[in-house]
Design a protein around this nucleic acid. Structure first.
Length: 589
DNA sequence: GCCGTTTTCGGCCCGACTGTTTTCAGTCG
């Protein structure tokens, strides 16, 4: 069984134990274990085989045994027994807002209600409101929560969340008395999908901000509102887009509390716990309002000062996942993360020669306008007829066109590339002599997504082992929140890429964003070269590169790990390097 | 259930808010 599946089971065990009223720290341990597993770099089966699971923070003796059992046999008696003893519908019920494990258990024991449908019926004839500790408002919230479940998926893509957040910040910034205001939470950490918006502001007078927030243009419901904290549901259609709902929280603090609150509400939770533990060891107390020793508060005007007092270098929000960043910051060994301004060009863009909307020249001019020094054109290859893939004859004509454009583009270079299909058997969609006519080759899977994991892994490894393949395109084929990627053992693919000097793409399109950040970090440690590509089909999509930078930073990448930070005069010889290396070392081919 | 430069036992974040109460339990982040 794979680690993501096992993580889901650990999470479910944690929730089931909560419903049964188990010690909350024991429940937490299962949730923490699930998260540790998800963020695990490298091969789970190897860790299991070598009995090294316990070396992973958050996984102790018990969890290591249970994970091993699941990994090897795909079954776990402890889990089966828990499931048998607790109606599975309760797992849905505890996810409803304002319902937690205690209320779920009360509903089950007092009313015999064990799934959402029964709960809805119980609310409609007011049986829920009559329970001790419940009332009409709770019942109404539960009903609304059931409706909400029907109409929305929970997470939202980062680009969508960001657009709504910008509109909200613009409205709030006008409110008199606002001193500082920032986005926090997973959006500030630049995760690929976002659950809700967290906004933090400082002001000596929170009242007007709270009022304004509850009346924002996008608000369809006020979930809760106090003196310093307010929660609302926003709908994007109030800002002119298609309907998309997301919850948003605003917290207002005094300005001298802002640095602590910003760190606290940025998270991640795991990072916060670890930082607080570090503070405790230093005899300090850290919470969302202050840092203090036994007799006095230690003022910090911003996060940089906060980290400094705790003996650490500044940790960028993207790295705050308790994945080693605290130790690295304390040892003054944090990487200098790559940033958008470091990018000199990019390699995976389409034009109207295949399924893009713009001409080669328009794409090149758009890239130049963004400050880039070169652009790689990688239109689809011949077998992708649905995207008007290029035949070898059209490739030759396109190359002549690129030569013509290059002859008059001062200080800018268009590189000749292809996004060449990886055929079902791992072969490539052009013959070697055609492939050799390009400056570089991006190899991608666009067909036969439902091969077995072994077939797909073998297929992709064969492609990245080819001496003329420069980089692997979108490595999992996922479309975020719409479809999972194909089944592939990325660990093996990354190892093959490292062995053959083939780069792996970070696809910057916010609908895709593969390689994900965990594998990105793994690729770095395996010595795989990464390249950030927008997969642009229109001129304005070249700007999507910034979402690829987010992934790179979450994956701890530095300039030297990202190929397209190289200056224009370095690029051409480096693109030829792999082919020449293969010729010199034929055993690699 | 995890963890250890004060601990192999005893901590593990805790404050805001809501809805139900009439002083507080449960949820949430």
């Amino acid at each position: 069984m794979e680690k993501d599946q096992i993580a889901l089971i650990l999470e479910e065990i944690g929730t089931l134990l909560e419903i049964r009223g188990e010690n909350s720290f024991r429940c937490q341990a299962y949730h923490a274990g699930a998260r540790a597993l998800r963020q695990l770099e490298g091969d789970l089966s190897a860790l299991v085989r070598e009995k090294q699971l316990q070396s992973v923070p958050g996984i102790g003796k018990t969890l290591a045994e249970k994970i091993s059992t699941l990994a090897v046999t795909g079954k776990l008696d402890f889990y089966e027994e828990l499931r048998a003893a607790t109606p599975s519908g309760l797992l849905q019920i505890v996810r409803l807002p304002s319902v937690g494990p205690k209320k779920a258990m009360t509903i089950y024991q007092q009313l015999g209600v064990s799934d959402i449908a029964e709960l809805k019926a119980a609310c409609l004839d007011s049986r829920v409101a009559s329970l001790k500790g419940f009332g009409p408002k709770t019942q109404k919230k539960i009903l609304e929560g059931i409706e909400f479940l029907g109409q929305v998926g929970q997470r939202v893509r980062i680009d969508q969340a960001e657009a709504i957040a910008r509109a909200v910040l613009d409205e709030l910034a006008e409110v008199p008395g606002v001193i500082r205001i920032e986005l926090c939470g997973s959006l500030r950490r630049r995760r690929e999908t976002i659950n809700d918006l967290d906004i933090l502001a400082s002001s000596a007078d929170p009242g007007p901000l709270m009022e304004r927030f509850a009346r924002l243009r996008g608000v369809v419901e006020v979930i809760g509102k106090g003196d310093t904290k307010c929660s609302v549901t926003l709908d994007r259609n109030r800002y002119g887009g298609a309907s998309l709902r997301i919850n948003a929280d605003l917290r207002v603090v005094r300005d001298d509390q802002f640095a602590f609150a910003l760190h606290y509400f940025t998270g991640s939770k795991e990072h916060n716990v670890a930082v607080r533990a570090r503070a405790q060891k230093m005899g300090l107390k850290l919470n969302e309002y202050e840092l203090a020793d036994t007799n006095r508060s230690i003022p910090c005007k911003d996060e940089a000062e906060l980290f400094q007092v705790l003996g650490m270098d500044y940790i960028s929000p993207e790295m705050r996942e308790n994945m080693g960043e605290i130790e690295a910051a304390a040892a003054r060994q944090l990487p200098r993360l790559v940033c958008l301004e470091d990018l000199q060009g990019t390699f995976h863009c389409h034009t109207n020669w295949s399924d893009g909307a713009a001409t080669i020249e328009e794409m090149a001019e758009a890239a130049r306008a963004l400050g880039l020094k070169y652009l790689g054109i990688a239109d689809h290859s011949q077998s992708l007829t649905i995207a008007n893939g290029l035949t070898p004859d059209r490739v030759r004509i396109q190359h002549a066109e690129i030569d013509r454009l290059n002859s008059r583009m001062n200080g800018f270079r268009i590189f000749k590339g292809t996004e060449c299909d990886i055929l079902p058997d791992g072969g490539l969609d052009f013959t070697d002599d055609v492939l050799a006519s390009f400056d570089y080759v991006v190899a991608s899977v666009h067909s036969h997504f439902n091969q077995s994991e072994d077939e797909m892994t073998t297929r992709i490894i064969r492609a990245v082992s080819h001496p003329l393949v420069t980089m692997l395109g979108h490595s999992t084929g996922r479309v975020l929140l719409r479809r999972d990627g194909y089944k592939v053992n990325l660990e093996q693919v990354l190892r093959a890429a490292a062995r053959h000097g083939t780069m792996v793409e970070i696809n910057a399109h916010p609908q895709r964003l593969d390689l994900d950040w965990v594998h990105c970090k793994r690729a770095k440690s395996l010595g795989v070269g990464l390249v950030i590509n927008p997969d642009a089909h229109r001129t304005e999509e070249i700007g999507l590169l910034r979402f690829g930078i987010d992934v790179a930073r979450r994956g701890w990448l530095e300039m030297k790990n990202v190929f397209n930070t190289q200056a224009i005069d370095q690029i051409a010889p480096l693109l030829r390097y792999k082919a020449s290396r293969a010729i010199q070392s034929p055993q690699l081919a």
